[in-house]
């Protein structure tokens, strides 16, 4: 099917290419260029070589953000790989009312992160529902500072991430579960394997590619975490900004009045390389384990 006019395909592509180039490729190139300058958000800037990157190495706020973000990835990814899978197995069988359960389990995905953040900050506040229940059950004497202790704030944000992502990855796993040949499960049953054994010996190995996909997606999403921490702390990232994440620090450094666009760009490139590295790492890890 050859076009009669050579430019016809380009007319079809023009709007999408214009958006991709103007709002992705050019800003990305600009980020690379700016990272070697001392530009502010107001403009200007001189070439300063690797100064921004040198400064990163000794910037406590950057390292703190990096540590918090890394902790986020390390805690959230295993939870996101495992919990939605268990829920998917739970809703897989078509028992009465299962459509209702599936839909409700998905509903947090539809809510925006801000809505989720406001709901959770009310739940987790010092006189909120969670603390009241904990006190009613005599599990704690004093309310736990879920939102005002920076370490706990970070873990509260992680819990919210998992709550909001659970339904999404559940649907991803459901699609994969549907592709497992029933004959395999039946054969295992005939061989005397119970439900747990069938799950670990048949289902999990066959779902491996999906688990890698979920790990990659949730790792990249966790590396970019911002709204959870921002909304749970009313924009402060905890006392002294101790719960800051990488994106939080980039925004703080590079935007607003007198923002250091150049320095923030160097941080942005660190984030870009980090997400790239994460996806390569997860894929590698998977292929190595396969060979072993």
């Amino acid at each position: 099917m050859t076009g009669r006019r050579w430019y016809a395909p380009w007319l079809f592509l023009a709007p999408a290419l214009a958006v991709a180039v103007t709002f992705f490729l050019i800003p990305f190139s600009n980020t690379v260029v700016l990272s070697f300058t001392d530009a502010s958000t107001l403009g200007g800037g001189h070439f300063t070589g690797l100064d921004n990157y040198r400064r990163l190495l000794s910037d406590d706020a950057f390292w703190l953000s990096l540590r918090n973000t890394a902790l986020y990835v390390v805690v959230v990814v295993p939870l996101m790989v495992v919990l939605p899978l268990l829920v998917a197995v739970l809703v897989q069988r078509r028992i009465a009312g299962i459509g209702f359960f599936r839909a409700v389990f998905y509903s947090p995905v539809v809510a925006s992160m801000v809505v989720a953040g406001l709901i959770w900050s009310w739940l987790l506040s010092s006189d909120g529902l969670v603390n009241s229940l904990l006190r009613a059950l005599h599990l704690v004497a004093e309310p736990l500072p879920f939102l005002t202790d920076s370490r706990l704030l970070l873990f509260s944000a992680m819990a919210m991430t998992v709550w909001k992502g659970l339904g999404y990855y559940m649907v991803v796993y459901l699609a994969a579960l549907a592709n497992i040949p029933r004959s395999l499960l039946e054969a295992a049953e005939v061989d005397g394997a119970g439900p747990v054994r069938r799950f670990t010996s048949v289902t999990v190995p066959l779902l491996r590619p999906t688990m890698v996909l979920v790990a990659t997606l949730s790792a990249i999403a966790s590396a970019k975490v911002f709204a959870e921490v921002y909304t749970l702390s009313d924009g402060s990232a905890g006392p002294g900004g101790e719960a800051r994440t990488l994106v939080y620090t980039i925004r703080e450094a590079g935007l607003g009045l007198g923002g250091e666009a150049g320095y923030a760009s160097a941080m942005s490139l660190a984030l870009f390389l980090g997400t790239l590295g994460l996806s390569v790492f997860v894929t590698r890890l998977n292929s190595q384990e396969r060979q072993a």
């Binding site: 992705f24 800003p27 990305f28 600009n30 980020t31 980039i250 923030a264 942005s268 984030l271």
Partner: peptide, 17 residues
Amino acid sequence: ATMIIPFESIMVSEFLM
């Protein structure tokens, strides 16, 4: 390529654009 670039990593330049 645009799928690999996280929006968060270009937001400063996007703002300038």
